[in-house]
Design a protein around this nucleic acid. Structure first.
Lengths: 215, 215
DNA sequence: TAGATTGTTAATCGATTAACAATC
DNA sequence: TAGATTGTTAATCGATTAACAATC
């Protein structure tokens, strides 16, 4: 297996989603063509991605869906249980705590943490503990990935406590761009920025057509 | 002004966020250096981005923050009010409806829509209407951007009704990759996938170090 | 002035795309 | 066989980075 770059890995996960849907519809084989359409890339990219992880196709029959699912699942570690914690149980944090899609995809939210005693609920479906218990919990349960949904101002400190305790991957919803040291991975989802970007891209994209030749 | 590519536009918005924070801290000028660090790019990118929209700097004194904010704001249309609707008022939809950060950034959630009569609440702070009223609302208010937070199965149909009525930009939280026609812009935020990607990148990233020389 | 930083050009890099031989 | 699709190589494209002259 050759070295995979980040964009390939992200695509592999998306192929897998599409393939699971195709399989549930009773499909047996698929062409690079179809998969490319489904995730919005050219067929050449699909074939290249698959050859990167040595998934065999048939010169005329395309790819077998079960084979693809098996190989992609193995490459991505789909067999493993993915345990995450949610830090900050406000509106967004608690919405995520009950998000059905996580369970469907093998993501298990094992606990929430909050600094507000009124939100602590150790016997809830997904228990919410005091945030001071977080480091011990991370260490004892060996949690590696967490979701940050605390206010702006608290985010940086919360993050450093998490990484100190062993968290390596963070999905951050606080509206600040968090960074961390080597070997740690942060994905910032800034919802305000996402919406603004839509407005900006529409505004500036529109402008481009008429102005196009003036450049 | 030269043509801006997508990644430049996305960076401009991020510079603006950082600059607003710097300004609120009393800073007056900033170097391409500093801004690069803040959003994780090299100083050359920052200077290039600014020269694309003709923002002047001082050969030794860096950039004036007020000038930057004014230019970036103008380029991005920060003066305009950004009105959005939220379609699907379940957990995630309603969490977003009350999201403070939107208001702070000039994003105004003007209405929610849901197919469940129990969720309709026309006199709420942000009113929730029956989804059948959505197309008329979009048309009469001239809404161009919407958030989709409906279940998986409903997403495609909801999207087509939205775009037919005039929506041009969509932030989609339903766990399917929506696509739409020319001139429409969709940003898919698949939360399950985001979390999985963290696990995948950690798994495959880790592997890379030891395997690195075997390639 | 000397030192530092911008603004811009050229070089590099990596990813995407095109093309096509292999072959089912 | 003829037609179609894979697997892979080479060409293209675009964005990032390096470098450096201009100049405050």
């Amino acid at each position: 297996m050759k070295e995979l770059n980040k964009s390939t890995i992200l695509r592999l996960a998306r192929y897998l989603r599409v393939l699971q849907k195709l399989k549930s519809l009773g499909f047996v084989k698929v062409f690079s063509n179809n998969l490319g359409d489904a995730i919005g890339v050219t067929p050449a990219v699909v074939r290249k991605d698959f050859s990167m992880i040595s998934i065999p196709g048939n010169k005329r029959g395309g790819y077998n869906i079960d084979t693809l699912i098996a190989h992609l699942g193995a490459a991505l570690g789909k067999d493993q249980v993915h345990e995450v914690i949610i830090v900050g149980c406000g509106r967004i944090g608690s919405a995520l705590m009950e998000y059905r899609e996580f369970a469907k995809e093998g993501i298990h939210v094992v606990a929430g943490f909050d600094s507000d005693p009124a939100r602590v609920a150790a016997s809830a479906n997904v228990p919410i503990y005091d945030i001071r218990e977080m480091p011990d919990f991370i260490r004892s349960r060996g949690i590696t990935v967490g979701i940050v949904a605390v206010p702006d101002a608290a985010a940086a400190q919360v993050l450093s406590r998490m990484t100190e305790a062993g968290i390596q991957g963070v999905l951050n919803f606080a509206p600040v761009e968090l960074k961390c040291s080597e070997g740690c991975l942060i994905h910032n989802v800034n919802l305000g920025l996402e919406i603004e970007n839509l407005f900006y891209l529409l505004k500036l994209g529109d402008r481009q057509s008429p102005v196009h030749e003036l450049t």
